[in-house]
Design a protein around this nucleic acid. Structure first.
Lengths: 206, 206
DNA sequence: GTCTATATTGTGATAGAC
DNA sequence: GTCTATCACAATATAGAC
């Protein structure tokens, strides 16, 4: 973040070195618990304990438990839009495809609690909010679709399969990774991104 | 489960044409609600209503709500083991790979409630039962791994990437499909299986 | 095999003191 | 901004009649 740490800042002594504020901690712990136990499987008392508060104190930061899930789901999709958009800018089509795959996977794993909750717990939102989140999710799909389409137009990837259909396969490749990847395993997420790109582009055939 | 199918009390004249018994209906509705709302998000009252009983009556068929989830998760994995094992038997390696992909996807979609619950709600089981389910899941992984390894040995698919790594990509391709596939869309699951096989084997490169 | 009634604990959320 | 105390109700599960 490009926040100015200028000593002349008017806000009362907000130093860049300050650790997460309580609101940030709350969101982080909520994402963590929602991922591990599901939204419905996480009580406000549990959440409060994780943050180090009484459950009543949570309501200083949120209006309801569902608010928290909504905030997480929106930020999860926005996170991916920002990361992939930034990763592809200024790149030639085929390089942009590689960069998008890598950026998606590294960002998703680095923000695993948030993004897995985003993917797996939308169902727990009210219909209205679920639709809102699906709109931000669609926004991300369009970013990825653009990458695939430009690679097709540049003649880098096959056009006998529609961009939509290639996208279905690509998103399968990307999304499920969150569910099994172990950061303590012998395969780094960058290595898996390379592996995935390779198989997606070259195929598994001998 | 509170199944007591011991031979001591075998009911006479059980016809194959009989519609689902109450126990089967209970399992089916549980899988449906667990998929839509999650395990923790589904109450025993809701479940009872879906089956057409009072919540207390459920306890004639189960010992606890978790029992139901456990039964679903075990049967989900067994379902896939059976389907894919049968689909590949007697087939040459590369044909077995195609058949496995197709059998996985069609079986998963036909039993979507059960299999999606199996994949997404294991986390809601007690540690002991979670481990048991992961064992049956590992059994299925071995079936698929055998298919990939035999295709490598036959020279049908590349060996510069290990079977384990090819499996990671293949399982991504297969698993995420459950989360977005629409049976009322313009793409049948068999068509998607063909699409997936094609991209997995040939690659997306022009 | 299904019911009514209920025990017991847990839940999201609020009131109001400090 | 955090607390204690509490409300109103929903949760899983049991008891025992029919």
């Amino acid at each position: 973040m490009a926040t100015t740490n200028s000593a002349t800042k008017k806000k009362p002594a907000v130093r860049a070195a300050d650790a997460d504020g309580t609101e940030q901690r709350l969101l982080r712990e909520a994402a963590h618990l929602f991922r591990k136990q599901g939204f419905a499987g996480t009580s406000t008392r549990e959440l409060a304990a994780a943050v180090g508060l009484q459950s009543a104190s949570l309501y200083h930061y949120m209006e309801s438990k569902e608010d928290l899930l909504y905030a997480i789901c929106v930020s999860g999709n926005q996170l991916m839009i920002d990361a992939v958009t930034k990763a592809i800018e200024g790149r030639e089509p085929i390089e942009a495809l590689y960069a998008a795959i890598r950026a998606h996977l590294t960002t998703a794993i680095e923000n695993r609690d948030v993004y897995l909750t985003t993917l797996a717990e939308v169902k727990s939102l009210s219909p209205r909010r679920r639709r809102e989140v699906q709109k931000t999710r669609q926004g991300y799909a369009e970013v990825l679709a653009g990458v695939v389409e430009r690679a097709q137009e540049a003649g880098d990837i096959r056009t006998d399969i529609s961009a939509d259909h290639l996208m279905l396969v690509l998103r399968n490749l990307l999304s499920w990774t969150l569910f099994w990847f172990r950061t303590d395993g012998d395969l780094s997420i960058e290595q898996f991104a390379d592996l995935g790109s390779k198989v997606f582009l070259e195929g598994a055939r001998a």
